[in-house]
Design a protein around this nucleic acid. Structure first.
Lengths: 344, 344
DNA sequence: TTGTATGCGTTATCAT
DNA sequence: ATGATAACGCATACAA
C-alpha cells in the first residue's frame, strides 16, 4: 500500500508527537530513547511505511549508501555472478550498487576510478580481478581514504581490505588429479604473466608438479591471454608438435574451451586421447562438449564476504573481525579428463 | 590533481566574485548569464576542479542522476552487454547506473520494483525482457510517474517508452535461410508461451513458413523454457522419434546449444545430418562446436537507444523525437546450418 | 543580467 | 531522554 505523497521524518515526528531529532535517533538505532517513545515512533514508521530519503541522509551524514563495483573483466559470467551475490548483501543492509567497468591497461585508469568514486559518491568500492591486483589503485584509494575491498587470488593487502581465493593450494589439487589419472605428459597454458594471479597459478602448478616428480618441459608451458581465442592459439601449438601431451591444464575455462575447439578440428578425442582441465567453473564449463573438468572458484562466497567486509568498514563497526578472508576452490570432475591410456 | 578539501558552489561563487545563484546558472547552462561573468565562473570551476555534489543537487532538484536497470534474465551475457552499452551513454551524460535483478514470477514483483525505485531514488528505469513485457509493471510505473523505457521485441507501448527489436521480420529471414538450404522437414523449439516475445517468434515463424508452402507438423513444434536444460529435453524428444527433422530452429542460443549436446550424444552429425539455427548470437554462439548459425539481436544498439530515450524523458527535453524505436536483427551464418542432403 | 531568501529531508550540535 | 536549531550543497521563486 504505497501512500501518495512522500512521507518524511517530519510527518512521523508530528504523528508520534515528538521532535524529529528523536525520530532520527530511532532510525539510526540510538539507545538514548525511552521505551514507550521508541515504540510509538516505530509504530508510526511502520504504519506509514516511512523510508528515510537517501539523498537527504547522504547530504547530512556524508554517506550515499551506494557501493561501487569496479572491474575490467571480459568474463561476463563472472561479473554477473559477483553482481548477484553483492546485491543480495546490499539489499539486506540498505545499500545499492553502482557498477563501473574500466580499462585497467589505459593510462588514466586510476584517475578514471577516482573520478567515478567522487562522481557517483559511492561510500566504498569492491574491486574485482584483475583490477584488484593494482597496487597503485589500492594505494590511491587508501590515500583518498575511500573504503575498499579487493577480491583477489593472493595475499596482497590487509585482511580488512581483501578477500582471497587460495589458488596455490588449488593448483596442487589439480596436479594430484592428473597424477591420479596416470598422466605424465602434462602441458599448461598459463594466463598473462603480468597478472599476479596467473603467476600464482603457474608457480603453484609447477612447484607442486616438481615436488611430486612430474617434470613439465619448456615447450609445454605456454602463455595465453585468458581469452577463448588465445586458448585456440596455444592449443594449436601444443597439439601440432611431434609429441603430444596427454593432458593440458588451462588457466581458465575460456582457454580450455579453445582447446576443445582445436582438438575437435584436429580430430583428437577428448578425453580418450587428451585430458583437459580448466579453472573457474563458469556457467559454460558444464555445457561444452565434452563437459569440462575444472577448478571451481567460489565466486559468490567471495563476493558475499567482500561486500560484508566493505559495509562493515564503511559503518566502521568493530572492523571486519569475524569475516573470513580466505576461501578455497575445489575440483569439479567432468567429462574432459580421464585415465591416461598411454603406456610410457 | 585532486584538491584536498571538497570545493563547493559557495567557494566558486566567492572566487568568481558572484552569487551562488549565478554559479548555479552556469552549471545548469542557463542562457541568462553575461559573457564575461560566465567566462570567469567557468574558469574558476575548471581551475578548482569543481563538481556539483550529486546528493545535494538531488535533494534540491528532486533528481538523483541515477538510472535503474531492472531485469530478470538468466542470460548473463545479455545483461553484461546491455550494461556496458548503457554505461557508455550514462558516462557521457553524467548519470550512474544502479542495477536491480528481480524475480518476475514472484507475487511481490511489482512492489519490489517500486520499492527499489524509491529506495535508490533512481530518476528512471530501463526494463529488460522478459520483465519488459509486464503490462502491470509498466502501468504501475506510469501511475507513479516514474520515467521508464522498455526493451522488448514487440510494439507494447508508446514510442517514447519502448525500444523494439523487430523479431517477426527476423523470423521470416530464418525461414528463408532454411528454405534456401533445401530444408523441408523443419522443427522448432519455441520459448515459453507465457512470454510475448516467444509467441511473437512462434507466430512469425509458422506464418512465414506457411506463406512459403512449408508445413510444420504438430509434433515438431515443442515449447522449451529458454534454458540450456530445456533445450536438451526438447531435442531428445525431437531426435528420438521415427522420423527426424532435417533442421531445427531454437528460440535462443542456449537451447540451440542443448540441441548440439543431444545430437552429439546420439551421434547425429551437425550440419551433415541436421541443421541448427539459434537466436540472439550470444557470446558463446560462435564458440560452441559446431559454431551456431543464429539471428543476431543488436543488443548494444537497443540498449544505447533505450538509455538515450530515458535520459531525454527525464530531462523532459523535446521528448524522444529523433531517436529510433525499431531495430532489426540479422542472420549470422556459421557451421551449424548447411545444405540439406536429404532427398524428399 | 544578477542576487536574496527559502527549502529539500536528514544528521549533528548543543542545550535542557 | 528529548528538543530547538543549525548545517549539508544545491536549486528555485521572487526581487531588483
Amino acid at each position: 500500500m504505497a501512500t501518495k505523497t512522500k512521507v518524511t521524518i517530519n510527518d512521523i515526528a508530528r504523528i508520534a508527537g515528538v521532535s524529529k531529532r528523536t525520530v532520527s535517533r530511532v532510525i539510526n538505532g540510538s539507545p538514548l530513547v525511552g521505551e514507550s517513545t521508541r515504540a510509538r515512533i516505530e509504530q508510526a514508521i511502520a504504519e506509514h511505511n516511512f523510508q528515510p530519503d537517501k539523498q537527504a541522509r547522504g547530504l547530512a551524514s556524508k554517506r550515499s549508501y551506494l557501493l561501487g563495483l569496479v572491474y575490467d573483466n571480459p568474463d561476463a559470467l563472472y561479473i554477473d555472478q559477483v553482481q548477484r551475490a553483492v546485491l543480495d548483501v546490499c539489499a539486506n543492509l540498505g545499500f545499492e550498487l553502482v557498477v563501473h567497468p574500466c580499462h585497467w591497461s589505459e593510462d588514466n585508469f586510476i584517475d578514471d576510478c577516482l573520478t567515478f568514486i567522487s562522481r557517483s559518491n559511492v561510500d566504498g568500492v569492491l574491486i574485482l580481478p584483475p583490477v584488484s591486483e593494482s597496487k597503485t589503485l589500492a594505494q590511491a584509494l587508501r590515500e583518498a581514504e575511500h573504503p575498499y575491498v579487493r577480491i583477489a587470488s593472493a595475499d596482497l593487502d590487509d585482511p580488512q581490505n581483501i578477500v582471497i581465493s587460495n589458488e596455490r593450494e588449488a593448483m596442487a589439487d589439480i596436479v594430484d588429479h592428473l597424477l591420479k589419472l596416470g598422466h605424465r605428459d602434462v602441458a599448461m597454458i598459463t594466463g598473462p604473466q603480468e597478472f599476479f594471479s596467473s603467476r600464482e597459478r603457474l608457480e603453484g602448478f609447477t612447484e607442486s608438479a616438481r615436488n611430486k616428480g612430474l617434470n613439465i618441459p619448456e615447450q609445454w608451458l605456454l602463455e595465453g591471454g585468458n581469452s577463448y581465442e588465445s586458448g585456440i592459439e596455444c592449443a594449436k601449438q601444443l597439439l601440432s608438435g611431434e609429441q603430444l601431451p596427454s593432458a593440458i591444464f588451462a588457466n581458465n575455462d575460456e582457454m580450455a574451451a579453445g582447446i576443445l575447439r582445436v582438438a575437435n578440428d584436429l580430430n583428437i578425442k577428448i578425453p580418450e586421447q587428451l585430458s583437459v582441465v580448466g579453472f573457474d567453473d563458469n556457467l559454460f564449463a558444464s555445457r561444452v562438449i565434452p563437459s569440462l573438468t575444472t577448478m571451481r572458484r567460489p565466486v559468490d562466497k567471495l563476493a558475499t564476504l567482500a561486500t560484508q567486509k566493505l559495509i562493515r568498514a564503511i559503518q566502521s563497526e568493530a572492523s571486519s573481525t569475524g569475516i573470513e578472508t580466505v576461501v578455497k576452490p575445489y575440483l569439479i570432475e567432468r567429462e574432459s579428463s580421464a585415465q591416461c591410456k598411454r603406456t610410457t
